[in-house]
Nucleic acid binder design. Sequence first.
DNA 1: TTGAAAGCGGTACCAC
DNA 2: GTGGTACCGCTTTCAA
Lengths: 323, 323
Amino acid sequence: MSNLDQIAKLAGFSKATVSRVLNKSPHVSQETRSKILKIMQELDYVPNRNAISLSKGQTLQIGIITSTINEIVLAFLNSFVEVAGQYEFQTIIYTSGEDKKKELQAFEDLKRKRVDALVIISCVNDTDLLSTYCKYGPIVSWQRMDHTDIRSVAMDQYEGYMLALKHLIQKGYTRIANAFGRPSSINTHSRQRAYAYIMEQHNLPVLQHWNQSSIYNIRDGEQVVRDLLQYRDEFPQAILCSNDYVAVGILCEARRQLLSVPEDLAIVGFDNTELSHTMGITTVQNPIEAQAQNAFYMLSPQLVGRQMELQPLQYSLIERTTT
Amino acid sequence: MSNLDQIAKLAGFSKATVSRVLNKSPHVSQETRSKILKIMQELDYVPNRNAISLSKGQTLQIGIITSTINEIVLAFLNSFVEVAGQYEFQTIIYTSGEDKKKELQAFEDLKRKRVDALVIISCVNDTDLLSTYCKYGPIVSWQRMDHTDIRSVAMDQYEGYMLALKHLIQKGYTRIANAFGRPSSINTHSRQRAYAYIMEQHNLPVLQHWNQSSIYNIRDGEQVVRDLLQYRDEFPQAILCSNDYVAVGILCEARRQLLSVPEDLAIVGFDNTELSHTMGITTVQNPIEAQAQNAFYMLSPQLVGRQMELQPLQYSLIERTTT
DNA sequence: TTGAAAGCGGTACCAC
DNA sequence: GTGGTACCGCTTTCAA
């Protein structure tokens, strides 16, 4: 492998001049430039990115942290990789598997200058601890954070959940259950607030086993149906899900249990993923791609020195056949 | 940010000794070590990864190339990130969006020493061109390659497809259609060979419109059903799919069209993903996780200087309710 | 327009 | 066990 020095020697110029050519500096004469370019071509030269990173103190790499890559994360990840790539930034995946130590390595890598910035999709460490890393580079989060140092691109799911609740009530459903996600998450709290508010406002019943938590995926959704069926007399008319995959699980299991949807059980998903469309699940449209792009835009002032305008975000209800 | 030099000065030792402490060299006295470690702690010192990479000529980063991150890729990606992480390697995503230039950047990054190795999930460039990059580092592929320089971890889908075909025939289905993926791919060719062989052996009919290509995802699957319905009289009894997502699309659309499954149409997926389980789709179990792990193991001789034993791979048929 | 040289922050070989 | 020092390969300031 050839390096700058060799190119410089062969061309009869200094490293500085060769570097100028590489960086398209205007302060190089035309003939010098073409002579150097020719030699680079001949030697099949490409600059070493580690050397550049070390010298510039910038890697053009962004770390993205998630416990695991699942279907929900997919849309965000794709969209983020895409927009970051447009600005020459690469994306490194850090999967923690909910392990605090492993997750922390991503933050250490920010400190160690392996990445220029971090995006949190989900994290398990204490936010007070994580925010101490802000001094090493910009950090944004998709997951809502209870800490002011780390900004979040997510929307308040209170609004989205309200849409779903109002839709159900308007349709005449009164016995409404919830399949929440992480019990301690801000999203879950928002949803619980919306639920409590609406239920009280309409003077509707709230049973304890209608509030299930830690329901994340298809399998969990299937289990929810089986659990609810144990209380035959208190079976809900409708169920709101933490995401579309949970809704899919509930729908499939409901059918297996010979419940007809939406007559015996109405289902509302969340996110409006491809799958909810295919399976005809009523859901709340969540602009995930836009949030991923906003994540990059929020980093951009420190990354590319330019403030970028965030896209407006809005929920909407997509009515399909499960309500 | 502090660096080696500062630590050395403050501790009253040389950079070399500090470096030894960092790298856990045994040739440092206990008190020197603890003294240096104490100072590192006080200054909150961590070594700069770019400097290490430059000096060692190794980044501990592996690039993974795919046109887009979809559900099929998910299992592979998760598994690969996991196993690579166990050996301290990080994974960088390169999504090409089928753009040859963009895809080539990943290979240039191998040359430029941004990554130590590459894993191809899918690629669009000419394999002759890509194999010229082998001299810069190890490259393996999940997608089957027609080039000997780049080894593939994938299995020959001929075997898997045979399982599915034999299953259908044993069940008494004779009018069998195919939803193939990329027309030019080696996998598709393997499947076509298996199909042709079985059909001829059993003297079964083969209609041209029973062989659909470029069917990749749920939407494509839905479309397949609508297309096939145009030939009412020549509607197949069963259909084999390029993957489980196509099968899901076909299943959902078939139900919407009031076809009963498997009576009017039997469906066999491929891969045995979570979703096929949930929806009760008969499928071919494809050990994707093991292939991802093997991908790392195939890189390992050049990456960690150790030959690792590849896991044996085997297809099996998972019979569920769609056949 | 060009060059010399001092970084960037480590590693690793060779002395002692 | 420890230190001196030449790398690794590129950027950037200052002079000329």
